[in-house]
Design a protein around this nucleic acid. Structure first.
Lengths: 245, 245
DNA sequence: ATATAAGGTATAGACCTTAAACCATTTAAT
DNA sequence: ATTAAATGGTTTAAGGTCTATACCTTATAT
């Protein structure tokens, strides 16, 4: 006898245009497509980009502003500017993750399946230009003048590029979603030579495996890389000390 | 030097409440939570379930009706009823999949990563009641009086239950999404004893592995099961003959 | 015939979005 | 000092969507 699963009753509410715009801009800031002090396109340009009215764009920007992600300045040379992450927002992030650690674990579990899968496919399909782009990112990440924020931004781009090189929109989207969830946690990490070198070596080895078209090795390297990353985040979130680096 | 990725300009449009309701009902029908000739809840009940107005529910139902998924009848004993899949819609589905085979391949690739991952986690966490539910499903699926449609419905429920047993909302959601994409293809499959037995054995072995808490074996069985399924779909979609069984 | 349970329809008000115009502020060029 | 340009800030009118409520129509069972 078949038992019908209960009708999945979900409270739906309309997703407004301003919600979409807010989500996209928040994601862009979290993924560091815009870095600190960088200016977003003007309200008028954003309206054109998103094919929306200026008022609707302003509603999305107002939400970003109320979250402390951006700041507006009027006048010529004015505009909407991305605010740097403050020590306070760091601590708030950490507490939020401590309180909600179970949901972080869910993201990690998903990531450990999805990103190695993306690397596996990418090894079979990545194009020369994409490999070169990856190499440029990795090279830039190990330069001595690479700022902490630039380093974090490059790290995101490397992982998103591998997902894109998988040639599969599902992996691309999933990695983007995962990264948007965990990037605030990664921003908590210290910025030491040891971290830089560890990351450099993992990314370098991954690129070598991708270049060799070795899908299994690419997958394994990615798996170990993000396994290590998850453990480092866990240690950091539950560390007693506060953050100074 | 860092090169900024181009601003991802996407045309956003508001997602209306009726869109959400339409999506959920369409999904429920595709996943065979409602079977042929079954009655959906009344418009008034759906409005309560989704916390929306009746007019909005009617808009969603009108779209379902225009797609030929449901039919409305007025009067007492009237209501909204799920229509059976016709031979024509079968052929349309097949042609659509032939034309858009690349996007089917993307779903299969994603599925081969996500569902084995879900099975791996489920083996470590599945509860006694969930195992019993799975056993009941599998038993029902091999009964001689199990209709073709009931068989397909049970198949869906087994895979969704495993995803749910992973205890991870990301896997749960992803498997749902994947299944909604490929279920129309699975509906094209013949309903022979050979198919029934193959499915039965794969599901039986999977449950045994889950019950043993053997994560690696659960993952491998799931992988081979859906690899076989993808190949069977490919053969069916590109078969010359039309469908009689 | 009548009651009942559905779908079918109509109206008014609240909210969201667009388009277009205009105001206010700041900077750089003149 | 004046002015032009670029930006955010504001207003208004028109149209679309959603809610709430009420009432109409159809078909079945009693």
């Amino acid at each position: 006898m078949l038992i019908k699963p209960a009708m999945n009753l979900e409270q739906v509410s309309p997703k407004k245009v301003s919600d979409f715009i807010f989500d996209r801009l928040e994601e862009a800031i979290i993924l560091k497509e815009f870095m600190s002090d960088e200016q977003l396109p003007s309200e008028r340009d954003l309206a054109t980009i998103f094919n929306a009215s200026r008022i609707t764009v302003r509603e999305a920007l107002a939400r970003l502003e109320s979250l402390g992600l951006v700041e507006k300045r009027v006048g010529a040379k004015g505009g909407t500017f991305v605010l740097p992450i403050t020590r306070n927002s760091h601590l708030r992030n950490r507490d939020e993750m401590r309180r909600n650690w179970d949901s972080m674990i869910e993201v990690f579990e998903y990531r450990m399946v999805v990103e190695p899968g993306a690397a596996y496919l990418a090894a079979q399909r990545i194009k020369k230009a994409e490999l070169q782009q990856l190499r440029d990112y990795v090279t830039a990440s190990i330069e001595p003048d690479c700022s902490r924020e630039a380093f974090r931004s490059i790290d995101v781009r490397i992982h998103l590029s591998v997902a894109k090189a998988s040639g599969n929109a599902y992996f691309d989207h999933a990695v983007r979603q995962i990264r948007t969830k965990i990037n605030p946690a990664l921003d908590l990490m210290p910025y030491s030579d040891r971290v830089k070198v560890n990351n450099y070596e993992a990314h370098r080895d991954l690129i070598a495996a991708l270049e060799a078209g070795d899908a299994d090795r690419s997958r394994d390297i990615m798996y170990r890389h993000i396994e290590h990353s998850a453990e480092a985040i866990r240690a950091r979130v539950f560390a007693d000390e506060s953050f100074e680096d």
